[in-house]
Amino acid sequence: MQIYVCVKHVPDSAAIITILQNNRIDENVIFLLNPYDEHAVTEAVKIKISLPGSEVIAVCFGQDDAEKTLRSAMGMGADRGLLVVSDAQHESIEIARVLKAVIAQDGSPGLIFTGKESIDTHGMQTMFRIGALFNFPVATNVVRLKIEREVAIVDSELSGGAVDTYEMCLPCVIGVGRGLNTPRYPTFPDVVKSKKKVLKKINLEDLDIKTPKSNMSMAQLEPLLQERKPKEIRGDKREIAREITRILKEEAKVI
């Protein structure tokens, strides 16, 4: 089975973000593999091992520099990588069209993985758009996955500890939640090996993607400025408990 994993090259969550021209960030920060996608790669590799003859292909749409993220995915066990190169910013409808086109051009997917969201744009929709373009069923926030012949049985987490179990026909798209597994981080030999794996770069223009009729565009980007003025609550534990109660009652009005 060909297992595709869509990965995203994102700024490190600990990076200090500087905004340029009110519409983009200064990209001179550390970028890495989106954390949810680490779980997606790990799961794909796990399935590959259980289904001999399978192949895991990491796919990325991003700048040339995103090669690093694909190398990380290959270090974690993906067999090869596909990078569609573009310098411009793209939104979800177009991203999904690009990922669909490059996967369809490359092979015939049995499973497509994505992370349940990216930590930079938090769009939470690309997996559904890829599924709709392929006409494959999609599950998101998947915390348990079992492949049985032609179906995937998944647990998708809802709020308050509730879980939905679904059965999907293959091929399908899986948006991976963090509870699914513990990422398998590459060892040094893995990293060395990943450098020799095949990484194919494709120019966006060569995919002949039609510009979507509907679109989303960045009108403005600003830093979140939030000024809280911390006040200390002092006293013995009874006085502190009394003060917290007062805040809950009078300021927050929750009791």
Partner: peptide, 26 residues
């Protein structure tokens, strides 16, 4: 059709303009 949402792990606020026959907001 402008929506404000957090990006970059909550460090930025993006104002997104969306255009289409049908538009959706969460």
């Amino acid at each position: 059709n402008l929506a404000r949402t957090s990006r970059h792990s909550g460090k930025t606020i993006a104002t997104i303009k969306i255009a289409g026959d049908i538009v959706l907001f969460g």
